[in-house]
Simulated assay, not measured.
Amino acid sequence: MKIEPKHVVSLTYDLYVDNDGTEALTESATQEQPLTFLYGAGQMLPKFEENLSTLSTGDEYDFRLSAEDAYGEYDEEAVANLPKEMFSGTDIPEIGTIIPLQDNNGNRFQGQVVSVAEDAVIVDLNHPMAGQELHFKGSILNVRPATEEELSHGHAHGPDGHHHH
């Protein structure tokens, strides 16, 4: 079956990211644990879906997304100084820790602690893959029309369309 909006796609992928001139495998989805998503629902990177748009069940793919089409260029400005009072009652996170944050509008996002100063924790708010070209390789395992429930919820409920309890 061909991939179309309102269809649920299950696929495998290997994601390679350039690491000092060599491509390093960063993430994978396997046949046992595929990535399953509702196509066209805005959950995936738009250019990722665009690259899959001509494919059908059983097809293999191999494409690259520029940083711009993936998680954006690295933004030197996207660094926050969090006052240490924010962490009162808990330990100050170590450098390299990813911490969940929320902005004034209630949007949740993650930041990585880059340094700890005397009165503040400095957090990089860039996506871990910002500024990276992404190289995806994989195959389409299954394509099926989404169920009414999936369409109303706006996301896939697993490869076969049912919740797992």
Rank of each mutant, 00 (worst) to 15 (best):
Q43P: 00
Y39E: 03
K47H: 11
H157V: 02
V79N: 04
T22P: 00
A156Q: 01
G89C: 07
Y13P: 05
V114F: 02
V79G: 04
S10L: 03
Y39Q: 04
L55H: 10
Y13K: 12
F37C: 00
S152A: 14
Y61Q: 04
A70S: 10
S66H: 09
Y61W: 09
T54H: 15
E32H: 05
D91E: 14
E77T: 09
H153K: 14
T36A: 07
H127C: 02
N105I: 05
V79H: 05
Y39F: 14
G158S: 12
T36F: 13
L141T: 06
F48M: 08
H165E: 03
M44E: 15
Q31M: 06
S53M: 08
E50N: 13
S53G: 01
T90M: 14
G106K: 09
T54V: 11
G89H: 12
H127A: 03
S53E: 13
M44I: 08
E27H: 07
E149I: 05
T90W: 11
K47C: 02
A146Y: 03
N81C: 12
P83L: 09
H164N: 04
L52N: 01
D103H: 10
A120T: 09
A41P: 12
L35N: 15
I98Y: 10
E32I: 06
F136K: 02
G106C: 09
P145N: 13
A130M: 10
I140Y: 02
L82C: 10
Q132S: 15
L35M: 07
A70K: 03
E27R: 12
P159A: 10
T90I: 15
A29F: 04
Y16H: 15
E68G: 06
S88N: 10
H157C: 01
S152R: 13
L134S: 00
N81L: 14
P46E: 12
P83H: 14
N51I: 03
T22K: 13
G40C: 04
S56I: 07
E27N: 12
G58E: 09
I92S: 03
A24C: 07
L82F: 12
P128H: 09
G89Q: 12
E76F: 08
D69V: 03
L25Y: 07
Y61H: 11
I122P: 03
Q110D: 12
N126S: 08
I122G: 00
A117N: 08
V17D: 09
D69P: 04
T90Q: 15
A70I: 01
F63H: 08
P100A: 15
L52E: 02
H135A: 02
L151W: 04
D20F: 10
N126W: 09
P100R: 13
G154F: 06
V113S: 04
P128S: 06
N107T: 12
E94M: 05
E23D: 12
D124W: 04
D62Y: 12
K47L: 07
P83C: 09
E49D: 10
V8P: 00
